[in-house]
């Protein structure tokens, strides 16, 4: 018997009324994500993938269809699943420690301090405990936001183009950091991106979305083990496959 899926999206559709007409953003999306799986949702900017993630996170209500996590329907945001924002959502009025400890208000002081110390170290921000976000680099802020999410020990992480604003070198470093953290903390991860390389480097499976109204065009299994060789024939083949799915020619 296979275990039930961690996240199950069933017949999800989303329509927004805009002055006069109705825009359909998502159309009958069906997707199942296994426990501990890292799934990338890949699509061009503005295709509705962020909307999908916001619905799964419980921040938006779908027009029709349902999202089940652990076989329970999602009714709203929940600290068991944390959303990491596209624009950096760290709180600028809190220090690194304050941000990491933000969701830990139910714990006692000793346990809190211990958890904060652990996750500050895990994301490599030791020595910056008392720094404010504006004193950190973009990559550090992003790691801080991931630490804040991990600290409450969620089962699911939603990442909405988390590395989109970083430079390409930092982005590569952040991806391997994410994979390292994922090895340390088994989490189910839904990762929205418009970057084909990012999806091939990170994902167990890549869900390719079409443009508006967004539907699932294809789900591609990335059958490579970590660490992945970015110049191996298999990597290039998968990359080409996804490029083709997105509808881009192989040459510019």
């Amino acid at each position: 018997m296979t275990p039930p899926p961690k996240v199950s999206i069933r017949g999800l559709s989303m329509r927004f009324p805009t002055d006069g007409s109705v825009i359909e953003v998502l159309s009958s999306i069906d997707l199942e994500v296994k426990d501990g799986e890292l799934v990338c949702i890949l699509g061009p900017s503005g295709c509705g993938k962020s909307t999908l993630l916001n619905i799964v996170g419980g921040f938006l209500k779908a027009t029709s269809g349902a999202v089940l996590i652990d076989e329970q329907e999602v009714a709203g945001p929940d600290p068991r699943r944390i959303f990491v924002f596209q624009e950096r959502g760290v709180f600028p009025w809190l220090t690194v420690e304050g941000n990491v400890g933000f969701g830990l208000f139910r714990l006692g002081a000793a346990e809190r301090a211990e958890r904060i110390a652990y996750y500050v170290k895990l994301v490599g921000l030791s020595g910056f405990e008392n720094a404010y976000p504006q004193e950190l680099s973009g990559g550090m802020k992003q790691r801080l936001e991931v630490a804040r999410a991990l600290a409450v020990n969620p089962d699911v992480l939603f990442l909405d183009e988390p590395f989109g604003a970083l430079d390409s070198i930092t982005r590569l470093v952040m991806r391997s950091e994410l994979l390292r953290i994922r090895r340390a903390e088994k989490k189910t991860i839904l990762f929205v991106t418009h970057d084909i390389d990012e999806s091939v480097q990170l994902a167990d499976r890549v869900v390719v979305m079409s443009t508006r109204p967004a539907t699932i065009r294809r789900i591609v299994e990335i059958d490579m083990s970590h660490p992945r060789d970015l110049s191996s024939p298999r990597y290039i083949a998968l990359r080409d496959l996804l490029l083709g799915e997105i509808g881009l020619a192989h040459k510019i």
């Binding site: 996170g57 921040f59 709203g76 945001p77 929940d78 600290p79 944390i82 959303f83 924002f85 624009e87 959502g89 709180f91 933000f102 969701g103 208000f105 409450v152």
Partner: peptide
Amino acid sequence: PAMYLQAGRNFGLSTPR
């Protein structure tokens, strides 16, 4: 910013909190 409110709610904060 709505993002901060969303993040706060995500961590399970009650309205007074």
